[in-house]
């Protein structure tokens, strides 16, 4: 089986007079429709790993392949194109552009990808928001949404180009328990109903336990992987 995403022998070292190793010797394969929670103490390399898996950063040694394609030889533009078409990102902060409506925020990556015409883009964006219970948020500004709604709008934007994999870095870090639960409900649905894969970095053990597969990092190494 070709993994959706595969990291082999990946280490990331920040160069300098005293080099810093962010992650080391990572072997990790992710299948389609998998839901993985990555946990570990702060500074253990969780975010660094997510950036490597998300093709935002390049390994110092080792390789990362997506859908069977090795990314090592790809140019930055090729990686950006792959991210745009196949990956979605959610962070602790929503990163919605405040001067644009929710709908416009969703249309940004869609226009860049250019897979659909403007009318279809808007129809898809509205349908996507409706599927997350936010139809009425489409024409509002981020400012006019609650914190929980903003984060859901950020998830909708991450899904706008129909990605195979959603990568989330502490997506519930700014949310109360109820809204954190809603976010994880959405992740479960993306996996169960749509066959997408989700990798979520979180320090919230309770939410992490909802993911069928658990990966634990300590000092940049995977010390436990329930799915390996």
């Amino acid at each position: 089986m070709t993994a959706l995403l595969r990291a082999e022998g990946v280490s990331r070292v920040l160069p300098g007079p005293q080099p810093v190793t962010l992650v080391r010797d990572i072997d990790f394969a992710l299948g389609a429709g998998e839901f993985v929670a990555v946990t570990g103490p702060s500074g253990s390399g969780k975010s660094s790993l997510l950036y490597l898996l998300g093709l935002l950063d390049r390994p110092t040694v080792g390789r990362v392949a997506i859908e069977g394609r090795d990314t090592a030889g790809m140019s930055d533009d090729e990686l950006a194109g792959l991210r745009l078409a196949r990956l979605g990102f959610v962070f602790q902060f929503h990163f919605l552009l405040p001067e644009f409506t929710t709908l416009d925020n969703l249309l940004i990556p869609m226009r860049r990808l250019g897979r659909w015409g403007e009318a279809e883009r808007e129809e898809r964006a509205r349908a996507l928001l409706a599927s997350l219970g936010m139809a009425e948020a489409a024409d509002k500004l981020p400012e006019q949404l609650s914190g929980g709604m903003r984060q859901r709008a950020a998830i909708a934007r991450a899904l706008a180009n129909d990605p195979a994999l959603l990568l989330a870095d502490e997506p519930t870090g700014n949310l109360d328990t109820r809204n954190a639960r809603i976010v994880f409900d959405i992740f479960e649905r993306l996996v169960a109903e749509q066959g997408r894969s989700v990798v979520v970095v979180t320090h919230d053990q309770e939410q992490a336990a909802r993911a069928p597969r658990q990966v634990r990092l300590v000092d940049g190494r995977i010390v436990h992987d329930s799915g390996a």
Partner: peptide
């Protein structure tokens, strides 16, 4: 209008250049 805020609004998955180009896309 151009705007800048205290909070980060640069998209983490875009390079600096692509972030600067953003308003032209919208």
């Amino acid at each position: 209008v151009g705007m800048a805020f205290q909070n980060p609004t640069l998209l983490p998955w875009r390079t600096t250049l692509d972030n600067v180009l953003l308003p032209l896309e919208i």
